[in-house]
Design a protein around this nucleic acid. Structure first.
Lengths: 342, 342
DNA sequence: CTCCTCGTGCGAACCGGTTCGACAGTAGCG
DNA sequence: CGCTACTGTCGAACCGGTTCGCACGAGGAG
């Protein structure tokens, strides 16, 4: 394999000159630059990443820590990964992926051995074990998901509180007075998935203020359990006219459930979910939803991370906690409650 | 950050001795080894990956080239990625992930710059553009998916021909004489997704031999198109008693379609899919299926790749082309055709 | 004509590991 | 007792880049 020494020899210059000719960090005569470039082409030279990393202490690699938990819906996580991956590439970075269960170990390995310039943590829990490790690391980190303590990291998340309010307000405005909210499994909450109760509490509060009855339940992340649970909760609250879903598996299961019950949205029941447009397309979900924007969030995290890595963010520029405003994508699954129609 | 020089100084030995004490590649006195180990603990020393890669020309990183194509079902790809990732980690390797559309560019970048010791290609097409690049690279490669030309690489794939035969034979044995096979989108075939017609041709041949009528159609990878298409093909062949699915999206859409038509499997229609058990659980698919074993295939590819990387495979041990035998997972969606029941 | 400056290129050091060859000291052996 | 063999350690070179400081020659200014 060709080294920069080979390039230099063929071009008839020293190694340092070849290096400068390629990096442009010092003035080089046109003649020499062209000879170096010709040599590069002739040899098919590509710099050795390890050597460059050693010399510059920059690897141009970003760590991506994803964890696929038993009780979460894997395809949803994929969206975030793709957002991170494509944005990273646009900015010239590669992705070192860890799907290890033990995220702290993976994080320590990547940071200590200097394989990466920075790291993106997905699916961050309220008291995430990985955060103390990340704070000790010399590399910057960006999170997707809101932890209790945001010091030392840049944080990006959907504004789940606003999302909860938006769902309730939207249906209230249409005339609904009794709603059901199906959240993620309780396990997710126990493990610190704060977004579940962030949305739920805000929805509850909005319902209280508007004088709307809200039945909030947890749902499984798997079928067929979630299908049964949806049936059960619909049985339990026959007067509810609106259904809010903060649970991808529930959204995916709902078409069948509604069909079984002979219900149509929005004629019999208004439905609002919380998932990405990509998700809706993949599963052909006909329900209006709060866009969860995983690709956008992943992209934002990477962009900010790269700013830190490359020092564009001033050394003591404060860390950001940025919430993406939820937007309701109207797919026509909400309308006036049945009573109002009659 | 601590270097091996710091470790050596604290332990009162030379750098080379410290290195040997840690690697165990030469005899070291107990006393010295313990002092070195103590120094490592004291400093929290971890070797610098770049430096080690430079010295040993081993990065302990495996490239993973996945491509998410518009007309393929993304969640299915995820399974392969996870299989590769977890097995790699078990063997001590990290994963450099590329989801770039231009796989050749990503591959060239990774191999030329020596970021990786080997590479796994997913979703390999019959005439995959990435293969010529891979063959020129100094690192070994393993494929998931069968190309026309397998020279120079290790190949792993499901035995789609056997899968096609198995599907047909299974239903023939139960008494079915008219079947429908829904494959992946024709785009996939045109792009070189040979597995589509490998299964289809084998199914056709098996049907011919058994005297079974087989209607083979292509289906979309998205809803709602695939739902409509399923309805259309069921309308077109009202006497068909068995449905074979080589299309994940079709499988995911089928419950709703059948429900709409008031059909039940296996009473009205016997159904056999081709997807992973994980996929079946995630979407609660009640259909018997040929297990596509993505995690297993990904794992096999990595294991063989690592054998090559570490030279356990003799330098001229021939490359393997290994087909995983399909197994039918019985979920009770097949039975005698309706006529036989009546 | 001399002195400075500027534009270019080179040599050497450095990043942080690994590994080869040499060597001192000790043990084993005849 | 002398020779060999072995054990344990060290120094130096090397992997392949980057970068700092310096030198050399030409051109411009005084």
């Amino acid at each position: 394999m060709a080294t920069i020494g080979d390039v230099a020899r063929i071009a008839g210059v020293s190694r340092s000159t070849a290096s400068y000719a390629l990096s442009g960090k010092r003035a080089i005569s046109v003649d020499v630059r062209q000879r170096v470039e010709a040599a590069v082409r002739e040899l098919g030279y590509t710099p050795n990443a390890g050597a460059r990393a050693l010399a510059t202490s920059q690897t141009m690699v970003i760590g991506l820590l994803a964890q696929f938990l038993e009780d979460e819906f894997a395809p949803a996580m994929l969206q975030y990964m793709l957002g991170v991956s494509t944005t990273a590439r646009e900015l010239g970075y590669d992705i070192l992926l860890s799907t290890e269960e033990d995220g702290t170990r993976a994080l320590r390995r990547m940071t200590d051995s200097r394989m990466i310039d920075g790291v993106v943590l997905l699916n961050v829990a309220e008291h995430d074990e990985r955060l103390p490790v990340l704070r000790k690391a010399p590399q910057p980190g960006a999170l997707v998901g809101l932890p209790a303590d945001c010091t030392g990291v840049d944080v990006f998340d959907l504004d789940f509180e606003e999302a909860g309010r938006l769902m309730v307000d939207h249906l209230h405005r249409l005339g609904h007075r009794e709603l059901i909210l199906v959240s993620q499994p309780e396990h997710v909450v126990e493990r610190g998935g704060a977004y579940v109760w962030r949305l739920q509490n805000a929805a509850r509060e909005a319902a209280r203020v508007r004088g709307v009855t809200l039945h909030a339940v947890f749902g499984s992340a798997r079928q067929p359990e979630i299908g049964r649970e949806l049936n059960a909760v619909l049985d339990a609250h026959p007067d509810a006219t609106g259904l809010l879903l903060n649970n991808e598996a529930a959204a995916a299961a709902l078409p069948t459930v509604l069909h079984q019950r002979g219900l149509a949205a929005p004629q019999d029941l208004s439905v609002v979910g919380r998932y990405s447009d990509e998700f809706a397309r993949t599963f052909s979900l006909p329900y209006s939803s709060i866009e969860s924007a995983p690709d956008r969030l992943g992209g934002m995290a990477v962009r900010q991370l790269v700013r830190r890595i490359e020092g564009e963010a001033g050394p003591d520029e404060p860390h950001v906690v940025r919430f993406v405003s939820p937007e309701l994508v109207d797919r026509g699954s909400t309308g006036a409650p049945p009573a109002a129609r009659a």
